[in-house]
């Protein structure tokens, strides 16, 4: 397992390097944002581009890019969105808000989603299953910003239980902050809950009809014991990787939800950096998300071995 993990990490680094190189070259091949003549900022941006080697071969430019990262931790300076400010500082300042909101969402969604999925599977083809399945389909089909508006209107405006917007500040784990995040967390969670419910129900339904479950019951286990000890464990091979999939979305944030609840996160940053052609910001975000995606893939793969001992990673046989 250790060698396998090492090999995967090595491959991941190579992949990350190649993706970064490709993105970098493609971005530098694009025409840079036009600079108005006789604008003093034009001179500043031109000077920055000169320093970044814009008039040099792409590989030299890439070398300068890597050199600045590894020797100075310098990912560049924002040309458009946060003029003159370091993109890494901006990014780091925005990541916690996205992570915390989505973390709460995941923490809320997984147990509820799995619980509903189990319930629906155990009550398969009953009215309970029908109701849960209908709600699941409805929640999956409707975009999260629709719930967001409804939640904001009902809970913040009509009932006044929660504030309209996420609280300002960086006290991420205070009660006031948590309370202010609830509408956003709910908006994000409903779809995720539905997703987990559907996945769990589908897997569990299938497992519950397996022969080994019949064997478990015949050897004297109660239905609950058989479900928890055997059926659910089998389902986890599918459910756990999807949890990691959700983890990636934790970091990417949600554009609409962040906008609606005024969450100062990274959700809008990626889109704005593309629209605003703020290439230093875009490169940082690209490298970060690529790295997160690759790490998540390794973790998912390795997790199979822990969840199901029959799966052996890197085995020569």
């Amino acid at each position: 397992m250790g060698r396998y993990a090492l090999k995967r990490v090595s491959l991941m680094l190579v992949t990350l390097f190649l993706i970064t190189l490709m993105c970098f070259v493609l971005i530098r091949m694009l025409p840079p944002a036009e600079l108005p003549m006789n604008d003093p900022h034009t001179k500043v941006v031109q000077a920055r581009r000169e320093a970044a080697g814009y008039n040099k071969p792409y590989l030299v430019q890439f070398w300068i890019f890597l050199r600045n990262i590894f020797t100075k931790g310098d990912w560049g300076v924002s040309d458009v969105l946060y003029f003159g400010q370091e993109v890494s500082t901006i990014f780091v300042s925005k990541l916690p808000a996205t992570m915390v909101v989505n973390l709460y969402s995941i923490v809320l969604s997984i147990p509820i989603g799995i619980a509903f999925g189990i319930w629906a599977a155990l009550k398969k083809n009953t009215i309970t299953d029908d109701i849960i399945s209908t709600f699941t389909m409805a929640l999956i089909s409707v975009p999260s910003f629709v719930y967001a508006f409804v939640i904001q209107y009902v809970f913040a405006y009509k009932l006044g239980w929660f504030p309209f917007l996420m609280k300002q500040g960086t006290d991420w784990f205070s009660w006031a902050m948590f309370k202010s995040m609830i509408p956003a967390v709910l908006s994000l969670s409903l779809g995720v809950i539905a997703g987990f419910t559907r996945t769990t129900r589908a897997e569990l339904t299938e497992v519950l009809t397996s022969e080994f479950m019949l064997l478990a019951r015949t050897k004297g286990l109660t239905k609950v014991q058989a479900t928890v000890r055997h059926a659910l464990k089998n389902c986890m091979v599918i459910i756990v990787p999807s949890i990691f999939g959700e983890f990636i979305s934790i970091l990417s944030g949600s554009l609409i939800i962040e906008k609606l609840f005024s969450i100062p996160g990274v959700g809008m940053l990626y889109l704005n950096s593309i629209n605003g052609r703020d290439y230093p910001m875009f490169m940082l975000l690209t490298v970060f998300y690529t790295a997160i995606g690759l790490v998540a893939a390794i973790v998912v793969d390795i997790s199979y071995g822990f969840i199901d001992p029959r799966i052996r990673m890197g085995s020569r046989k």
Binding site: F149, Q152, Y153, A156, Y157, G160, F164, L165, Q168, K259, L260, S262, P264
Partner: peptide, 15 residues
């Protein structure tokens, strides 16, 4: 505060 959506601004104003 940043309130990007007009609909939210309206609700907050009425509140």
């Amino acid at each position: 505060q940043v309130v990007a959506e007009a609909a939210t601004r309206k609700l907050m104003f009425l509140k």
